[in-house]
Amino acid sequence: MFHPGEQIVQRRAGLTVGGWGSAGVGASIPQVAADFLARQRLLVIVAADETGAAWAGALTGPPGFVTAPDDRTVIADRLPGAGDPLDGLFRTERPVGVLAIDPATRRRMRVNGHARDDGGRLVIRTEQVYSNCPKYIQTRDATDEALPERGPAQVTGELTAEQQRRIAAADTFFIGTYAQGLGADASHRGGNPGFVTVTGSRTLTWPDYAGNAMYMTLGNLELEPRCGLLFLGWDDGHALHLTGRARVDWDPERAASVPGAQRLIDFEVDQAIEVSGAIPQRWSFGGYSRFNPA
């Protein structure tokens, strides 16, 4: 099935190649992808809750905590932890977007499908499996340094001053989108620190840089503006989950004011959940992507 949102965005962006986008993505997991999954320590997962709010969260573990026992199944041997907005959602099977990312090698792949809780494991039946280019990924290595244990969740309706500071200093975040009947999707966004602008206690803006022109994120947003953002504290293990609504601004004059931007995305926060100790180990910084605009 062709994704109507992707087609609308592709036309606006001037893309004339027919059949490009999620409709051309296969459901099977090739062996090279299964091997990649088995080496990963970090998954970003995305789903919508019963109210339709979209959330992005993280699953972490040692290499081997994710497996692909056959060419249509991915299993993570754990579920979202306490305080994570995705905690408990998979008792009922629902659409899920998954991003497996290895910052050390700048490799990533996406797995979209349906997921359910199977005795404390997250079992995903795949519908879309594909790899992405390494653009805008900053290198990081997982260390053996353990961070403090998971703490309670802090829930607010707007960003605190410290959360605003974290976002303004971030070089990476993850975005989760979905469209009714078309599934969920998890994606990475990266740039030099400051590429996300905090414009208020409930508003953010970031640039949309040149990518693979599939426009899976923007295509979902065209049909459903509700989305979730995840900012990870690579040094301290904090996870900041935001849910809200995003709007794509196609004004070329506004985009021209931001280096490298093809368009800008404005996001309004509905709710913020911060969990300390959400990821258990420190990730050491390596270097910025050479693709990051100045």
Rank of each mutant, 00 (worst) to 15 (best):
T203I: 02
L43C: 07
N132V: 05
T51A: 15
D144I: 01
Q40L: 12
E149Y: 02
V275C: 10
C133W: 01
P225N: 07
R106V: 12
K135A: 08
F231I: 08
Q31R: 14
G219A: 00
A38D: 09
P134T: 05
Q10Y: 06
D171N: 13
I137L: 05
L99H: 13
H3K: 10
A13G: 08
R106M: 14
V46E: 10
M214P: 01
G19H: 07
Y215P: 11
G277A: 09
E149D: 14
D249H: 10
R121G: 01
R165E: 13
M216I: 03
F195H: 10
V74Q: 10
W55F: 09
L242G: 09
T203L: 00
P4M: 10
D171V: 04
D144Y: 02
Q163D: 09
S257E: 15
V9I: 15
P4Y: 10
V44K: 00
F231A: 05
P148V: 06
V25H: 06
D118I: 07
G83S: 10
V44R: 04
V25G: 06
Y209E: 01
R106D: 11
F90S: 12
A184G: 11
N212T: 04
A272K: 04
T197W: 08
F267N: 00
G181T: 12
L232E: 00
G26M: 06
E149M: 02
T156H: 06
